[in-house]
Design a protein around this nucleic acid. Structure first.
Length: 712
DNA sequence: GTTCCTCGAGTTCT
DNA sequence: CTCGAGGAAC
């Protein structure tokens, strides 16, 4: 480890020393351009060249090394102790508001206290990170402390010094005098994309991953070895000051501008308002914008702009009266894991599900959360009784991120996968190389039969409207239905007197069953519920064999010859038809008059020929299935995940963050719905002029929209 | 033999 | 949306 020698005093400088000083100044200025202004004036390569030259000179001329050199940033030579430190001025907490009304209430209070005539406010996004206080003496960073309880925090100076966006020296600026002493406060945080990269890296190295960007930031700051912290993508936004000597601007807004001049990143979305309605509008706009930001935001902080007015308003209890945090709906929360139950799926897979103490999470009450598989529970070390961290994937499906180990009760018990099927009692098996445990009793297990029927009538398969989980359960339990064919022989009278079925409902149901008889062969085939055969694989098979009977008669080798179908899938199909009951089922469906052969859909246009398109978010008037059908009919290929081969990502409203992120990463064009509709032709679905095209032919040259620009 | 791309299955709540 | 795993490409 390199230890810097302090160089003190004024004396003649050698040309080497002059060059070193020059380089340091230049690099600091480029850091400022890059990290603070987000507007680098030299390329990364040029920057690296400057760094290299400086590092070389310092290594060959050790006498000129210095602790505050930019090269030193990554290798602080200090051992971290995390000493407790008392904040000279308490770091206060903020009053919280959860509803718009509470913001208006706050305004009324301000009005009552000192009058709001001519008052101005600032609005700053509240980044989900860690509050930190940085002390600078004579422009040099001497101490960094965590907020702790507000009065006493921990000294994390050595770790903070590794962060690029924290200046080790205040920047000299002609417009502002550097205070001899100043405490700068702000938030240490991690960007979501950099957090994901970090987790990928940790996972690859077999290390523990972090649950969210905030925890990752906190964990990174508490590293014993600053060199580890240096590898973490930490960033810093300054938002206020503590004690300061000399002159300092007397408003929050000017404070932020001054901090920016001194070399700190401030949040560019901060605004100043003289009109309270405008401030409310800003808050509303922010709720929408939340997802588009590269970092987690958990609310907005409103402050009275004038520091004089702030002093006048003072503090009540622990919270200042002049500020309020408008909190967004939490997207992550914790609750107690009450129990883990298992469900049997249609393929026999046993899936554990978490039963949790009901809790509010992004607007709904969550009682259950998915747990995927037994291995995951073991890997995360989740125990019954634990306090667990919850999140809604894509803000929809709740899942458990992990246990809060610090809060683990002594009586928390590890969970074990049952050895037998909870429904039919058959001993569970775990196929070689698979994670899932299965109930092997596929034909006999009543739960599997029910689930398969539910799937057969679902939207992806026969789409029988009016038959859902409840109805299927009832029909099976009453012994009225035991396979798909039975559904088509149901008569209206069996529903009379049945709970939940009025005359109208029965008529509708009979109609939708009749309609289902005309479903295309693809849907009939899918409704069989063969493991590993859904939309795409079913299409492939039908294209090659043209009827379900032909597939049923095909050998494993024949099927494996199809591009996209390998031995495993082929084996699965063969096994399915090898079971006698299934051959009979197919015969029954054929007799009932369902479509069991032919029917390839011809493309209606070639505007999307050769393109692979991923849709994310929702658009008006079209369901996801309809959009995918639309893409197919125009010669394109709809897929569900973004990869390097994706041509376009069509983003509707509320697009999925991870898809957009991937698209940006691979430099894939993201187009909106309107643009997409122009591409398929304004009539969209209805335009059917061009004859069917040969899918194998070369795609026509297309004018690609400009590539996405980099964030930095 | 490894990596990348896709697909399928299961999941919550109102 | 997430995960696991099959299949093809290298």
């Amino acid at each position: 480890m390199v230890v810097g020698l302090p160089v003190k005093g004024v004396r003649n400088m050698s040309s080497i020393e002059i060059r070193i000083q020059e380089l340091r100044t230049q690099i600091r200025e480029h850091d400022y351009q890059y990290f603070v202004l987000n507007d680098p004036i030299i390329s990364d390569a040029e920057y690296d060249a400057l760094m290299r030259e400086l590092r070389m000179l310092e290594l060959s001329h050790r006498e000129y090394q210095s602790d505050d050199s930019p090269t030193n940033r990554l290798y602080p030579a200090i051992d971290v102790q995390f000493k407790k430190v008392r904040h000279p001025q308490v770091m206060m907490s903020l009053a919280k508001a959860f509803k718009e009304k509470e913001i208006y209430d706050w305004h009324s209070r301000l009005d009552k206290e000192i009058g709001t005539e001519g008052m101005a406010w600032t609005a700053e996004p509240k980044i989900d990170g860690l509050a930190i206080a940085l002390t600078y003496v004579n422009g040099v960073l001497v101490r960094a402390a965590t907020r702790g309880n507000g009065e006493i925090g921990e000294d994390v100076t050595a770790n903070i010094e590794t962060i690029n966006t924290v200046p080790k020296q205040l920047r000299r600026d002609t417009h502002i005098q550097v205070p001899s002493e100043i405490e700068v406060r702000g938030e240490i945080y991690m960007r979501t994309d950099e957090f994901d990269e970090l987790n990928d890296r940790l996972r690859a190295a077999g290390e523990k991953t972090a649950a969210n960007p905030r925890n990752a930031a906190a964990g990174s700051l508490r590293q014993k070895d600053p060199r580890v912290t240096a590898t973490r993508p930490l960033r810093f936004f300054a938002y206020s000051i503590g004690p300061v000597s000399g002159n300092w601007p007397d408003t929050q807004w000017e404070t932020l501008q001054a901090l920016k001049k001194l070399g700190f990143s401030i949040n560019d979305d901060t605004r100043r308002f003289e009109n309270f309605e405008a401030l409310i509008n800003y808050a509303r706009a922010w709720m929408m914008k939340r997802d588009e930001l590269p970092y987690e935001v958990d609310g907005i902080v409103f402050k009275v702009d004038s520091l004089a007015q702030q002093r006048e308003l003072g503090i009540v209890g622990t919270d200042p009266r002049w500020a309020i945090a408008y909190k967004f709906e939490a997207r992550e929360t914790s609750s107690t894991l009450k129990n883990i139950t298992v469900a049997v799926g249609r393929t026999g897979v046993i899936t554990p599900a978490a039963e949790i103490e009901p809790v509010q999470l992004s607007g709904v009450t969550v009682r259950n959360a998915s747990l995927h598989n037994a291995d995951l529970i073991t890997k995360l070390d989740i125990r019954i009784g634990d306090r667990v961290l919850l999140k809604r994937a894509g803000d929809v499906i709740p899942y458990i991120i992990g246990p809060l180990l610090a809060a683990r009760p002594a009586d928390a018990v590890p969970w074990q996968m049952p050895t037998n099927c909870p429904v039919c009692g058959t001993a569970l098996v775990r196929p070689e190389g698979e994670v899932a445990w299965r109930c092997p009793n596929s034909d006999g297990c009543p739960e599997q039969r029910k689930r398969r029927l539910e799937y057969a009538v679902s939207r992806e398969a026969l789409d029988i409207v009016g038959l859902g989980e409840q109805q299927v359960r009832m029909l099976v339990e009453k012994g009225l239905v035991s396979d798909i064919a039975d559904i088509f022989t149901l008569t209206p009278d069996v529903f009379v007197d049945m709970e939940g079925f009025g005359e109208k409902k029965i008529a509708n149901l009979m109609q939708s069953i009749a309609n289902a008889k005309n479903q295309p062969v693809l849907r009939v085939f899918i409704s069989l519920g063969i493991h590993m055969v859904a939309d795409k694989v079913a299409q492939l098979l039908l294209q090659h064999f043209d009827s379900i009977a032909a597939i049923a008669g095909a050998s494993v080798v024949e099927m494996s010859q199809i591009d996209g179908i390998g031995p495993v899938k082929a084996q699965n199909v063969a096994e399915f038809f090898g079971r006698p009951g299934n051959q009979q089922l197919l015969a029954k469906l054929t007799t009932l008059g369902l479509n069991v052969r032919g029917g390839r859909v011809a493309p209606r246009g070639d505007s999307l020929a050769g393109m692979t398109i991923v849709v994310t978010g929702s658009v008006p008037d079209y369901t996801r299935e309809q959009i995918e059908a639309l893409i197919t009919r125009h010669g394109g290929k709809p897929t569900s995940s973004v990869s390097k081969k994706t041509t376009y990502v069509v983003a509707g409203s509320e697009p999925g963050g991870s898809k957009i992120q991937k698209a940006t990463e691979y430099n894939i064009s993201i187009i909106d719905w309107a643009t997409f509709m122009v591409m398929v032709g304004s009539e969209g679905d209805v335009a059917l002029v061009t004859p069917p095209v040969d899918i194998e032919s070369e795609p026509p040259a297309t004018d690609m929209p400009p590539a996405q620009s980099r964030l930095f």
